[in-house]
Simulated assay, not measured.
Amino acid sequence: MNSFKNEKLLIPSPLQEVEFYYRGKVCRLFVKRDDLIHFFIGGNKWRKLMGHPIFKEQKKRVRVLSTGGNYSNLVFALCWICHLYNYPLTILSPETAEDTYLMEWAKKLGVEFIGLSRTQLRAVRNDKQSPFDYITENKDVIWIPEGGSGPWSEEGISLMIKEIEDLLHCENVTLLAAAGTGISSFYMLKNLPMDWQLQVFPSIKSNAFNHFLEEELGKCQGKLAQWRLISQNGDKGIGNISDDLLDFLVTVYDHSGVLLDPFYNGKALYYFYKNKGLEGQSHQVVLIHSGGNQAWYGLSLKYPSDKRIKYLAEVVKTEFERFS
């Protein structure tokens, strides 16, 4: 699929060979540029949503209901997709959420936000409370869970693995990916060739989330020796970015022209590097660029005096403001 409601999609996305120098070391790897599929709907959100029935074929009367925070990559993608399909979109969000640049932009596209307490959102996410309880009209409403994941997600993710196989033509490949819900990682592992490895960075810093990922990935029969979690040692969790990580991401961009996001794929590569994963390679390393670069725009508004953040934000700022 190389078009979507008359929007041009870059499918297959490029597999870019990257080289950069950091602290006296030469680092080489490939980056699967899913961020280039489309500015708004690219990355792993498109991979996970492209197989959903309501996006494979236009429906006449559908309201989309989902959930996400005030900087959510899913909200970012769903806003544009539902705008193209003329589907009304309602987002269950934290009631304490500030009116961020993303929420303001979404409201311009007609998105409705319903504020819930932290307890209510947790109940919805854990399937202990129906999301339909919070809307007045349940007819023809389609629920898309946090992260956009579901059984439909395997179609796009398996296609991505096939694209890498077709473009790389080699054995002994290590895929690097970041996990927010774990669904993308699960389907990557499920469709992984037998001589490949998958290393996953847990973007949420908690023992409970690590255990959840271990349980989910452990469900892929016959794949136990093909995956591992990347150590988070030193990370302060999603939404936080250290000076060292910032310097690393600026270096990667300056040397390769590839802008990585600050919370997911950027951290995956940074902590893989810190764990000496790029040293003495006997395998090809492929980082999955899952999109999310709009986060730099938000960070530039939050930290206007940081020149490094401002520098990287300029890469996406012009494109974002063009649609704002």
Rank of each mutant, 00 (worst) to 15 (best):
K107G: 03
L102C: 02
L109F: 00
K107T: 10
K108S: 09
I135L: 05
T119S: 13
K108I: 05
V111Y: 01
R122Q: 12
Y101N: 01
G115V: 15
L109H: 00
K107H: 07
E112F: 05
W105A: 00
W105M: 01
Y101S: 02
D99Y: 04
I114H: 12
E98N: 05
V124S: 09
Q120Y: 14
T136P: 07
W105P: 01
Q120M: 15
T119Y: 14
R122F: 12
E112L: 11
G115R: 08
W105R: 00
L109N: 00
S130L: 03
Y134K: 02
G115Q: 12
D99W: 03
D99M: 06
K128D: 12
D127A: 12
A106I: 03
Q120G: 15
A106Q: 01
L116M: 13
R122V: 13
G115A: 14
P131I: 00
D127S: 11
G115E: 13
G110H: 12
W105I: 02
R122H: 12
K107V: 04
I135M: 05
R118I: 15
D127Q: 11
Y101A: 06
K128A: 09
V111E: 01
E112D: 15
K128V: 11
T136W: 07
F132M: 06
V111C: 04
F132Q: 02
I135D: 05
F113T: 15
L121S: 10
R118Y: 12
K107W: 03
S117D: 13
P131A: 00
R125E: 09
G110T: 15
I114V: 15
V124R: 04
G115D: 15
K107S: 05
T100Y: 02
Q129I: 07
A106H: 01
R125D: 08
S117T: 15
D133G: 02
K108H: 01
D127F: 07
D127M: 10
G115L: 14
I135P: 10
F132W: 05
Q129V: 08
D133C: 03
V111N: 00
R118M: 14
R122Y: 10
R125L: 08
R125V: 07
L116T: 13
E104T: 10
A106S: 06
P131K: 01
T100R: 04
K128F: 09
D133Q: 05
T100L: 03
N126A: 09
L109T: 00
I114C: 11
D133W: 05
M103D: 06
R122C: 12
I135F: 05
E104Q: 09
L116A: 06
M103R: 03
G110P: 13
R118F: 11
G110C: 09
T119F: 10
Y134W: 02
L109G: 00
Q120H: 13
F113G: 13
S117H: 13
R125A: 08
F113A: 07
E104W: 05
